[in-house]
């Protein structure tokens, strides 16, 4: 099926306006477009981990979601969705639920890479027919920009501040997508918010229609945490992809496919420079930080190219 942006945009909205997410928030664009990959007649039940997306979309009694939705806690979206899926199988078997449902779980990087990691890993290993979608904004944004294991090295966060002795987060970003691939589940993909959302839409669609567990990792910038102007969201994601910091790829039944290879890989400064959280890296004498950051991006990109047979 050919992707038609206009057609996608004209679908009935499943993620209503009026939510409390910030202007320029990647999570809202992410959720809206993942849901847009569903056909209007497709039914879905959604589990949401605690985080910005949850808190800002259901402040009682107002709700953004047009579909049935469940929030339990921060670290358990995987297990909770697994329970929903077990119920689905039980109720379908007994004829109590006649309609077909797709099951989605949303969590931020805090709820996915860190506190909810065990719950996610367990759910994927058990093979629940569900899609876990991580919106990765590289820190605990809901509590005020604290570092997570997803936070990039050197990033200035409120618990990895760029001080006079320690220049931001000392550790490299955890590569969760590779960890999920190691679960040997049928579908894993990495994407972000780009131009007409084709890449995200198609990957979400494939994930949702893959029987068994699927994992989507979606880079979803945060203007407060990354310190960029709210109208620059799409510039952030584009730079992440063009510098190969956030490669677009998918792994279908263990086979790697690179979704996009930049004609000319841009230097990492293009991604780092517009973000206030990396500002200190551009001070005189800190060139080594940019060099080491670039080396890590290159190393991971080369490894990925090999896996993709490029």
């Amino acid at each position: 099926m050919t992707y038609n942006f206009v057609q996608e945009m004209n679908k009935p909205e499943r993620f209503a306006g009026g939510h409390r997410l910030c202007a320029g928030c990647g999570a809202a664009v992410m959720a809206r477009n993942v849901l847009r990959s569903l056909e209007p007649e497709e039914r879905v039940a959604i589990v949401n981990a605690t985080g910005c997306l949850q808190a800002a979309t259901f402040p009682y009694p107002y709700i953004t979601w047009e579909d049935s939705w469940l929030h339990s806690a921060f670290e358990n979206a995987g297990a909770t969705c697994g329970g929903v899926e077990a119920a689905y199988r039980a109720l379908r078997k007994r004829g109590k639920v006649k309609e077909e449902y797709k099951l989605l779980a949303f969590g931020g990087d805090g709820g996915t890479y860190d506190i909810g990691f065990q719950s996610l890993s367990g759910a994927m290993e058990r093979g629940h027919d569900m899609v876990y979608i991580c919106y990765d904004n590289e820190a605990y944004m809901n509590t005020g920009i604290q570092r997570s294991s997803s936070t990039s090295r050197f990033a200035d966060t409120t618990t990895s501040p760029a001080g006079s002795v320690i220049p931001g987060k000392p550790q490299n970003k955890k590569d969760l997508t590779q960890v999920m691939i190691a679960h040997n589940i049928p579908y894993v993909a990495q994407t972000t918010l780009l131009s007409n959302m084709k890449d995200l839409n198609e990957k979400a669609r494939r994930a949702i229609h893959t029987p068994g567990p699927a994992f989507l990792n979606i880079l979803a910038p945060c203007p407060r945490g990354w310190r960029y102007e709210t109208d620059q969201l799409m510039d952030m994601t584009k730079a992440a992809v063009e510098t190969c910091f956030w490669p677009l790829f998918e792994v279908v039944e263990g086979k790697f496919h690179l979704s996009y290879k930049p004609k000319k890989k841009l230097p990492i400064e293009e991604y780092l420079k517009p973000q206030g959280r990396f500002k200190h890296m551009f001070k005189q004498g800190n060139e080594w930080m940019i060099e080491e950051f670039q080396q890590e991006v290159d190393r991971r990109w080369e490894e990925l190219l090999k896996k993709c047979g490029e």
Binding site: A45, V47, L70, S72, A73, E75, N76, G78, A79, T80, C81, G82, G83, V84, E85, A86, A87, Y88, R89, A90, L91, K93, R94, K96, V97, Q118, S119, S121, G122, A123, E125, R126
Partner: peptide, 25 residues
């Protein structure tokens, strides 16, 4: 006919029960 979910922790056991019961099971 019960679906048995061998979870990876008790936290997940109760979380799965919450998901299942909320789903109508």
């Amino acid at each position: 006919e019960t679906i048995f979910v061998p979870v990876e922790s008790e936290h997940s056991a109760m979380s799965a029960c919450i998901g299942a019961q909320a789903a109508g099971a």
